[in-house]
Design a protein around this nucleic acid. Structure first.
Length: 465
RNA sequence: GGCGACGUGGCCAAGUGGCUAAGGCAAGGGUCUGCAAAACCCUGAUCAUGGGUUCAAAUCCCAUCGUCGCCUCCA
C-alpha cells in the first residue's frame, strides 16, 4: 500500500487518487531570474524520484512543473543588465531545461509559464472579485483572507496569530494586513498586460492556481514543492483555488526539505549557494541524486564535499555488482545460486515496502546494497555471466526506478584507450618476467593520471577514476 | 514572540512500543594477490540530557539543552 506524508493533514496517508491508476501532480518550479542552484536541483530530483516510483507502481503520471517568468526580481535584474525581462527569463528557462536533462530527470508532461496563462489568470481574478473573495484598489487586486474561514489550514496558522508577529509594512489600502496581491499595477516601463483594473501583471500565487486549473483541472492529486513554499505561497494557492471553484484543491501536499550549506538553507537571497553549473563541472550528476536518496526527502540535507564523496563511493558500490563474471567460471554451487535467488526476492520486496512508506529511499537502498553483496559473493563463488544476469538486471531495474544511471558516462577517447591498452600489454610482458618495479611504476603513474588498473587471474582491467 | 521539524556508532542515515538497533562511507584485522586494487569475511553505537508512563521505549508523555525551517522574495 503506497503511502505519502501529507503536509495538509500532517499524517502519512494511503495514496488514493482521483482517477484509478492516474496521478496528477503539480510541482512549483523556479522563478527564472538567476542561475539555478543545487537546492533547485534537489527539489526537482525529489519529485522525479516520486514520479518514477509512482510509474513503477503502475500509475500514469501527469506531471506539471511551471516556470515563473514574470515577477519583481526578473524585472529588477533585467533592468540592471539592460535586458528585456522576457529574454532574461527565456535564457534561464533554457538553462534549467538543460540541467533537467543533465540530472536524468524525466521532463515534466507540461511546463507552463505564467506569461502564457494570462487569460486564465484574469478569468480567475474576475471570478474571485465577483464572489467577494477579492477587491480592487487603485489598479491592484487583493485577496480577502478574512472571507476564507479555512485560510491558514495548510501552514497551521491563524490569521490573528500572524497579525501579532507580522513585521511587514502594512499597506493601508489593504483591508487586512494578510491580504495578498492577485494583480499588481504596472509602473512605467514594466511588462504589463491589460485588465479591467488597468495595466499590470499577476501576483506570484495566482499563476499557479491558474495553471493548475488550466492543465490539471479543478482538483488534483498532488501538489509539491520545497517546504519554504508552504507559507505563504501554497497557503494562498489553496485559498484562491478553493474559493474560486468551491472544491477541495489538492488531495496531498508534498514538500521536500531544504538543502543546506554550512548549516543554513541554500538560497539566492543569502548567497550561500552552489550553482548547478558549478556542481556539474566537478561532480557526476548521480552523486547529488545519491545524496538525496540516502536521506529522507523531507529532512534538511547538508551539502559538503565529504558527504558528496560518500555518495560517489556508494554509487561505485552499486556498480560493483554489475561487473562481469570472473574468467574461467563454470558455475556457482547450488547453495550460492539459491541464496542469490532468495536475496533477489527479498531485495525487491524490501525495496517496495520501503518506498511504499512515504518514499523511504534510504531504506530501499539498504536492500539494494544487500543484494549487491550477495551478487559479488556469487561471482566470487564462480558464477557465470548467465547466472549473474537476472540479479544484475534487477539491480539495474530498481536503481533506474530511483533514477540512478549506473553506467559510466565517460567520454570515450579512442586514442587514449589505445595507449592504455598498449601499456597494459607491455606491462603484461614485464610481469611475466617478474619485472615488478617497472610494472608497478606503470600502474602508479597511470593511477596518477586517473587510470586505475586492476590485475586478476584473467588479466588486467582498467577504468577511469 | 508564534507555528513546525529534527538530535541514532568518526561521517551520512533507516528503524517510531517487544527477536541479535538496517545500509553506505571512513577505520582496524583477515582471505586473495608478486605487491596493490577490486571483491569477500570479521570488528564498533543502547539511540542529545534529565524525569515519567508501561511487563516492555531509540520508538509514547513532560522538561532542559542544541540545530534547522517558516512567519518577508525563496525549491
Amino acid at each position: 500500500m503506497l503511502k505519502v506524508y501529507n503536509t495538509l493533514t500532517r499524517k502519512t496517508e494511503e495514496l488514493k487518487t482521483l482517477l484509478p491508476n492516474k496521478v496528477s501532480m503539480y510541482v512549483c518550479g523556479p522563478t527564472v531570474y538567476a542561475k539555478a542552484h543545487i537546492g533547485h536541483a534537489m527539489s526537482a530530483l525529489v519529485f522525479d524520484i516520486i514520479r518514477r516510483y509512482f510509474e513503477y507502481r503502475g500509475y500514469e503520471v501527469k506531471h506539471v512543473m511551471n516556470f515563473t517568468d514574470v515577477d519583481d526580481k526578473i524585472i529588477l535584474k533585467a533592468n540592471q543588465q539592460g535586458m528585456d525581462p522576457f529574454a532574461l527569463g527565456e535564457l534561464y528557462i533554457r538553462e534549467f531545461e538543460q540541467h533537467i536533462k543533465d540530472f536524468n530527470i524525466l521532463p515534466a508532461t507540461i511546463n507552463p509559464r505564467a506569461t502564457r496563462e494570462m487569460d486564465q489568470i484574469l478569468t480567475m481574478i474576475k471570478g474571485l472579485i465577483d464572489k467577494g473573495y477579492a477587491y480592487p484598489v487603485d489598479g491592484d487586486v487583493y485577496f480577502r483572507v478574512t472571507k476564507d474561514p479555512q485560510y491558514g489550514k495548510l501552514s497551521g496558522r491563524r490569521v490573528d496569530d500572524m497579525q501579532a508577529g507580522a513585521r511587514i509594512e502594512v499597506d493601508v489600502r489593504k483591508e487586512h494586513p494578510m491580504d495578498f496581491a492577485l494583480w499588481k499595477s504596472a509602473k512605467p516601463g514594466e511588462p504589463a498586460w491589460g485588465s479591467p483594473w488597468g495595466n499590470g501583471r499577476p501576483g506570484w500565487h495566482i499563476e499557479c492556481s491558474a495553471m493548475n486549473l488550466n492543465h490539471l483541472g479543478e482538483q488534483i492529486d498532488i501538489h509539491g514543492g520545497g517546504n519554504d513554499l508552504v507559507f505563504p505561497h501554497h497557503e494562498n494557492e489553496i485559498a484562491q483555488s478553493e474559493s474560486y471553484t468551491g472544491k477541495p484543491f489538492a488531495r496531498y501536499w508534498i514538500h521536500n526539505g531544504m538543502l543546506q550549506l554550512s548549516g543554513e538553507k541554500m538560497s539566492k537571497s543569502i548567497g550561500n549557494l552552489v550553482t548547478i553549473e558549478e556542481f556539474l563541472s566537478k561532480h557526476p550528476a548521480d552523486a547529488l541524486r545519491m545524496m538525496v536518496l540516502n536521506s529522507g526527502y523531507r529532512s534538511p540535507l547538508s551539502y559538503s564535499e565529504e558527504i558528496l564523496a560518500q555518495a560517489e563511493k556508494a554509487i561505485d558500490r552499486l556498480r560493483s555488482a554489475l561487473k562481469p563474471a570472473l574468467g574461467g567460471s563454470t558455475s556457482a554451487p547450488d547453495a550460492s545460486m539459491k541464496a542469490l535467488k532468495s536475496q533477489m526476492d527479498a531485495a525487491e520486496a524490501g525495496f517496495v515496502e520501503a518506498m511504499d512508506e512515504d518514499l523511504n529511499s534510504s531504506g530501499a537502498l539498504a536492500y539494494l546494497f544487500e543484494l549487491v553483496r550477495v551478487v559479488n559473493q556469487t561471482r566470487a563463488d564462480g558464477a557465470t555471466g548467465e547466472q549473474l544476469e537476472p540479479a544484475q538486471a534487477l539491480i539495474s531495474k530498481l536503481t533506474s526506478v530511483l533514477g540512478l544511471s549506473l553506467h559510466q558516462t565517460v567520454q570515450v577517447d579512442q586514442a587514449v584507450d589505445g595507449f592504455v591498452e598498449l601499456l597494459i600489454e607491455i606491462r603484461k610482458d614485464l610481469r611475466q618476467n617478474k619485472l615488478w618495479a617497472l610494472s608497478d611504476k606503470i600502474r602508479d603513474r597511470l593511477a596518477g593520471l586517473g587510470i586505475v588498473l586492476e590485475d586478476s587471474k584473467d588479466g588486467t582491467s582498467w577504468h577511469r577514476e
